[in-house]
Amino acid sequence: MRKLAIVESLGRTVNRVGFKLKKHSPEILVVTGIVGAVASAVMACKATTKLSDITEEAKEKIDDIHADIENGTQTEEDSKKELTVTYAQTAVKIAKLYAPSVILGGLSIGAILTSNNMLRKRNVALAAAYTAIDKSFKEYRGRVVDRFGEELDRELKYNIRKEQVEETVADENGETKTITKEVEVIDPDNIAGYSPYAKFYEDGCIGWTKDPEFNLMFLRRQQDAANDRLRDKGFLFLNEVYDMLGIYRTKIGQQVGWVYDKNNEYKVDFGIYNIHRPENRAFVNGYEKTILLDFNVDGDILDMM
Rank of each mutant, 00 (worst) to 15 (best):
D78N: 10
K50N: 13
T13W: 03
S108L: 03
I301G: 01
I34E: 07
G11D: 06
A95L: 13
V145H: 03
D187G: 05
D269P: 01
L302M: 07
N159L: 02
T90M: 11
V124K: 12
D269L: 00
G72K: 00
K22W: 09
A5F: 14
V256L: 05
D134V: 02
V92P: 00
A225H: 13
I6P: 00
D261S: 11
E57Q: 14
E139G: 15
V7T: 11
Q222M: 15
V169Q: 05
L104M: 12
K233H: 07
A44D: 03
K251Q: 13
Q222I: 10
G257R: 05
Q223K: 08
V259T: 12
G72M: 02
K22I: 09
A39V: 14
A192L: 07
H24Y: 15
E56L: 12
C45A: 15
G105E: 02
N274L: 09
S101I: 00
E57D: 15
D134L: 01
E150Q: 12
K157T: 14
K96H: 01
L156T: 00
E184F: 08
A111P: 00
A58G: 11
E167W: 02
D134H: 07
G33S: 11
I109W: 04
R221S: 10
K50P: 01
D78H: 01
R141T: 14
K121T: 11
E184I: 02
P26W: 01
C205T: 10
G234T: 05
M118A: 08
T131D: 13
T131S: 13
N117Q: 10
V30Y: 13
N173I: 02
M304C: 04
K121G: 03
A37I: 08
V268I: 08
M118S: 04
N227R: 12
D303M: 09
Y273D: 15
R277M: 05
S79A: 15
V31T: 13
E60K: 15
F270K: 07
V284Q: 07
E155Y: 06
L293I: 09
V169C: 00
V284C: 11
K251E: 15
N71Q: 08
R281C: 07
K135Q: 10
D298C: 03
K81V: 15
L302K: 13
Y248A: 15
A127D: 12
I28C: 05
L292C: 11
F235R: 12
V38M: 11
H66I: 12
V42D: 03
K233G: 00
A128G: 03
L156V: 01
Y87M: 13
I191T: 12
G204K: 10
I69S: 01
G299I: 04
I109L: 14
F214I: 08
L126M: 11
A44Q: 07
S9H: 10
V259E: 04
V297K: 01
V284I: 15
A225S: 14
M244V: 08
A282H: 07
V7W: 05
A88K: 14
I252S: 10
A125E: 15
T49Y: 08
N190L: 03
N215S: 00
A95R: 06
R231F: 00
G174C: 07
K181W: 06
I179D: 02
G207Y: 04
N117T: 08
S101L: 00
K22D: 10
Q255I: 14
T75A: 01
G271R: 04
H276F: 07
K233D: 12
N296D: 14
I206G: 02
G11Q: 08
M1N: 14
G257L: 05
F237Q: 11
Y130T: 02
G110H: 04
